[in-house]
Design a protein around this nucleic acid. Structure first.
Lengths: 334, 334
DNA sequence: CTGAAAGCGCTTACAG
DNA sequence: CTGAAAGCGCTTACAG
């Protein structure tokens, strides 16, 4: 790599000291306007830019934040990253990306890196495995090192940190009420994530919207099994509407309609939890709950940036809920 | 942030010099085994890890690579990033992610950052706008700064750099020949990217596979317009098979079949250029050309890493083509 | 207003 | 085998 011009070289060319050059470029009031101009002119001429590594060493920081993502092929997380990157640029922070692939082991490795001084702060959504096993020691080690930390999306974890997520319970309550307001009586729920935190919250929202004796649910973590159960649920109860808590159940609902020639929305209305990218392109398109991924990412980054700047009380943590939006496509046309 | 233990503090505790501690931890043969053990023991006890910023300043590097991605919501690029991250970890490089959002201006800003010393090397797929306007000055400035550079995916650019991409022409030639081998005569092509590099290459592949007088093509950059054209193309020529060069045309083909009750694959076979995530979940599922995104990302990172290490001749550049695979789903069942 | 000096946390050529 | 010194490229308290 070409060696860039340094302060020292600049100072030699200008016949002033390194300190003077540094102060001039940093707009210090100590320096005379005349000198400042001379310095800046030559710096511009040589396209001088301070070596960020040196500046960071001096200031005892890294200028970077670490983002841990469970699965980047999930467009929700891709959107989150996009929001983070945009907000980070505004705060002059570089985003270092780590992908855990939903693996606890990988997540531990990453946290080990994170505590060794590569970043000024961390944004993390824990992996599925971590959630299931509820093993959070590696996250507490971030806390021990006093690395500013914001947890996003999967936020039902008992860790002292800022959190940014969505109101999962409310979104399903609202969706249920939406169907009721349209006169639907037999409303079912399908879930492949009934065993994890967010899944439980979404189911709770549905339950709160329904009378106890009028609920219809199909749950399984096995794709084929769930498919059979959903089909049975629909046909045996002559469902008018179906809520799906996750990607797999949403896709299965779409698939079942296609294979069994169920008319959607005529015979069955569907609301899924699925990315717009996919929901829009299914035939028929499936109405979905939009999570505003980029906004979640931006908000999380904003909170982290404030922590890094030290603007916030170190023992008080905020929990920000970014509201979801119901997006109506063909599957909920009345 | 908690202050981590430093070499100096360690040396004080051990009553040896900083140099000795440093050498001991770096397994220098200069140090006696006895001292080395003492040092390592205490370092382990305090969980000492060298400050990467200081190490990097000393070694005149950053330990990071910059990845520029046009659009992270495109699952192809998400997969590429995933491959890059995995390969970067192997080489002890941190990945700093920049998202250009297909914008030339943003790309210029990013390149400006990139030349100011944040990274040791750059992986870039240029934005659509950049490609269209063929404005590459900002990329040449990376070259001027002698920053190791690898261009991935959108590689038909005349810049002295390593490149990693796919054989677009060949993939469409093969797909065309596949249909022919199955006895199809009336094979059409739909494209929304006929005006850009890769689009032209894919069309070329199709043309080479067909006789000049038996080609059927529908092209437009406007969604509605393209939809009309594709439908006409299919019905007026009674097409047996359709190749789609890109996401939009693939989705439109799927949509047209749904709306007009065309039986796929009975009445029409389709091969699309679309991510597996979407192709698999359409009903019927659409056969597609798989680009092996993660492999492209890994290979690009490997090349970059070699450049950074200086293992390669600085005036010779490699161009790696990662072969595509035809993935057969329901839309090409014969 | 300018500059010499110290120092951020390391590594490494050199001396002993 | 160990350590003092120089230095990576900066910033900043201090002296003049």
């Amino acid at each position: 790599m070409k060696t860039k011009i340094t302060l020292k070289e600049l100072s030699k060319l200008l016949n002033v000291s390194v300190s003077t050059v540094s102060k001039a470029l940093n707009d210090s009031p100590e320096i005379s306007p005349k000198t400042a101009d001379r310095v800046k002119e030559l710096a511009a001429l040589h396209n001088y830019r301070p070596n960020p590594v040196a500046v960071n060493l001096k200031k005892n920081k890294t200028g970077t934040i670490g983002v841990v993502i469970p699965n980047i092929s999930n467009t929700f997380f891709a959107g989150v990253l996009s929001g983070m990157e945009a907000e980070a640029q505004k705060n002059n922070l570089q985003v270092i990306t780590y992908i855990s692939n939903e693996s606890l082991d990988r997540e531990k490795q990453i946290c080990d890196l994170l505590t060794s001084g590569f970043v000024d702060g961390v944004l993390i959504a824990v992996s599925e495995e971590t959630q299931r096993k509820q093993e959070y020691d590696h996250l507490f080690s971030l806390v021990d090192y006093e690395i500013p930390l914001v947890i996003y999306d999967r936020i039902n974890i008992d860790i002292p940190a800022d959190k940014v997520g969505v109101n999962d319970e409310r979104s399903f309550y609202d969706a249920t009420k939406f169907f009721k307001s349209k006169g639907c009586k037999r409303i079912g729920l399908a879930s492949a994530i009934h065993h994890v935190g967010v899944g439980k919250l979404r189911m709770k929202g549905y339950q709160d919207g329904m009378a106890p004796d009028e609920m219809f649910t199909a749950t399984s973590t096995n794709m084929d099994d769930l498919k059979t159960k959903i089909y049975k649920l629909i046909t045996e109860n002559d469902l008018e509407a179906l809520l799906c808590t996750d990607f797999m159940s949403s896709i299965l609902a779409s698939r079942i309609a296609y294979e069994h020639n169920l008319k959607v929305p005529e015979d069955l209305k569907i609301i899924g939890y699925i990315s717009s990218e996919i929901a829009e392109y299914l035939s028929p398109s499936i109405s979905y709950i939009e999570q505003h991924a980029a906004e979640i990412g931006a908000k999380a980054t904003e909170l982290l940036s404030e922590r890094i700047e030290g603007h916030k009380n170190s023992s008080e943590f905020s929990e920000v809920i970014v509201k979801t939006t119901m997006m109506h496509l063909e599957s909920t046309t009345f």
